[in-house]
Design a protein around this nucleic acid. Structure first.
Lengths: 115, 115
DNA sequence: GGGCATACTTACATCTTTGTTAGTTACTTA
DNA sequence: TAAGTAACTAACAAAGATGTAAGTATGCCC
């Protein structure tokens, strides 16, 4: 696997590239929530406890730019914005699910019992 | 999914936990290489170009402590150390493979053609 | 004796990601 | 008139991950 450059960033393998798109603390949790319905900014924020406006906004902006989600802005006051998942986003949900299952499996091995 | 603490570190979901074990720049590339044979430190280093002693050593030490790999030290000079994958490590190779496939898929969508 | 080889470790610098605080817009309700 | 609300952004601080340079042990070869 030779290295490659995309958007001025050097990657060494496909996993690195994939995680540059859906990795980080917030993106998978967001995609996971959007998989079956639209969510408003504030709903995501409440659901993703411990997440600041800034971080949520940043993650949403990148997912949007990368075509994993779309947003719909309503001309209301106070504003209403709804986020939905795209085809590309839906494809990512499959590996998020594998990673999730794998995480649960590891948690069991480490005797962490949650849910 | 409620939060949980393990080894003095707060986690919010199973994916975060899984990636705390096999995430980062080096761990998956290492596990991927060890999946079918033993590798020496210096072989890994040569194969994982751009990787300093320090980073390789750190990643190997953590994978070892977490039971994903084992090491065998030979009493020779200069030293020889061989790393092998464990059962737990082998299980991780399955999701690494999914992530890899997914990465290639994304690369195709972004018109990156490599291998 | 000096240099080479391997598998490390230590100290420190830098870069990237995440967190915190405060501000903005514009209408609605008390 | 003042406060409240939703969805942001900007400036800055802190934390975490990664990179760089140098050093260690031991024996072999020249």
């Amino acid at each position: 696997m030779p290295d490659f450059i995309k958007d001025n960033h050097l990657f060494h393998n496909p996993v690195e590239f994939a995680l540059s798109k859906i990795g980080g603390t917030y993106k998978m949790p967001i995609l996971w929530r959007l998989k079956d319905k639209k969510w408003r900014f504030s709903e995501l924020q409440r659901s993703l406890a411990h997440t600041s406006d800034r971080m949520l906004s940043k993650a949403l902006k990148e997912l949007l730019a990368d075509g994993f989600i779309t947003k719909e802005v309503f001309a209301e006051v106070p504003p209403r914005v709804e986020y939905s998942i795209t085809e590309r986003g839906l494809k990512s949900v499959a590996i998020i699910d594998s990673l999730r299952q794998y995480g649960f499996e590891l948690m069991r091995e480490y005797d962490i019992n949650q849910q």
